[in-house]
Design a protein around this nucleic acid. Structure first.
Lengths: 241, 241
DNA sequence: ACCTGAACACCGTTCAAGT
DNA sequence: ACCTGAACACCGTTCAAGT
């Protein structure tokens, strides 16, 4: 699909039925929607703001791409296509880690778009390149009758981890962030003995113990740790020793 | 927090400033919002529909619970409080599996509410009971400097798995479901050699290879398989052998 | 303190009418 | 085939005005 070319058409009066001078295409619409969501977040995106950005009336979008849900499906498609699939390697451990990291890296590049994945999902019949490669790797490992479960476990955990880490921590105003920090720092050691005793170790790094916007991304080590657990677990189950 | 008592107040005319005969409380609002989201899904829920259900004007809600984001935070709180924490046990493996299953079971009981978790998050300073218990278990295992990462890996994977499995598969009309099924059944074996060759094994059971609404819930075995991988991985890292 | 009534600035979507 | 212009049925939120 074409790269997102910057379309900043200034709305200029046009009579009924008159063509736009820059012809609106399906690709332009999807690319612009992608850019708007990416830059302004889901709240700054609407069918109407997209139409304005493109210099057309909202109804035009419906003619080209159908309704909002369908458009978001196309954006999802675009996003998934942007993930680089690491070259197949003999070392399946290294390959799986590379795939997982590649997926996460792409999500971090476009967090606002990536957040859509968990909410408004489109058809999933295309974009099966990575799933197919993962199924292949697991089958080659000898997953056998556990193939589905190994697949679901790995994909669900990796994809899910990224969704959870990117989930918004409430509204990102300085005040609410300060409030959260204060509340977390003054937790009752009676009720939460373990979090409080390991507070310095967890603060701003652990899920549920974050407050600033910069800490949306969890430590890379946490992700690698997870993938390590999965890989070792698979090896223990399927590889002869 | 009080159980959700059924409030079906029929809107009856009231003059300016007049009190409702059934007094509206914060708890009633939250409980009713929970019920509406649960029953009708996020699309059937709005501040206005909630107000109508309660027999008041929308502005009343703002007086009691603040804006929509804040209300959803309270609903989230309510949901999380509903998770049963299994009694601490000496067998940490059994305990972790029990906690993970308990979380997932609760999500499946209220899928529409659970879906909110990944999107509109409130403050997370309360409801730290389960996180605290998990931190405690991992610390006791001897996670040491890897405590954060072990915690993030386990919680991110378990919570994330559930989010991914519950994510909507596009719109659930019979036609679109049939379309997806047809597309999946007629995948190109050249492009997707592994999925096609294991199709019968994966169909309706694997992420990305589902089409019906009944298959939102992945096989329980897949979830248990994941938790097994995590537990074994932790044991291999932290337990002396 | 608590609620009404109305208003404001938005939405997504549809549709007849134009070229 | 492609787009306008207007309309419809909704939103979330605010605010003065009532009791």
């Amino acid at each position: 699909m074409a790269a997102a070319r910057p379309v900043k058409a200034v709305r200029q009066r046009r009579g009924r039925g008159e063509r736009a001078d820059i012809p609106i295409t399906r690709d332009t619409i999807v690319a612009t929607a992608f850019r708007l969501i990416d830059e302004r977040g889901p709240d700054g995106f609407s069918m109407r703001s997209l139409a304005t950005e493109l210099g057309v009336f909202p109804a035009t979008l419906y003619w080209h791409v159908g309704d909002r849900a369908h458009l978001l499906g196309l954006v999802e498609h675009e996003w998934i296509n942007g993930i680089e699939l690491p070259a197949l390697s003999d070392d399946w451990r290294a390959w799986m880690l590379a795939v997982a990291r590649s997926y996460r890296r792409h999500a971090h590049r476009h967090p606002n778009v990536a957040r859509l994945m968990s909410v408004e999902r489109a058809r999933n019949t295309d974009n099966l390149t990575i799933p197919d490669a993962v199924v292949g790797a697991l089958a080659r490992l000898g997953a056998g009758d556990d193939l589905v479960h190994a697949y679901n476990a790995v994909v669900g955990a990796v994809q899910g981890f990224v969704v959870i880490e990117l989930a918004r921590i409430g509204d990102p105003t300085p005040e609410s962030m300060a409030d959260t920090e204060r509340d977390l720092r003054s937790l009752d050691p009676q009720r939460f003995p373990h979090i409080t005793s390991h507070f310095d170790h967890l603060a701003e790094r652990a899920l549920s113990v974050r407050w600033s916007e910069e800490s949306v991304q969890l430590p890379d080590e946490s992700f690698d740790f997870l993938v390590g657990l999965l890989i070792d677990g698979l090896a223990a189950r399927f590889l002869p020793r």
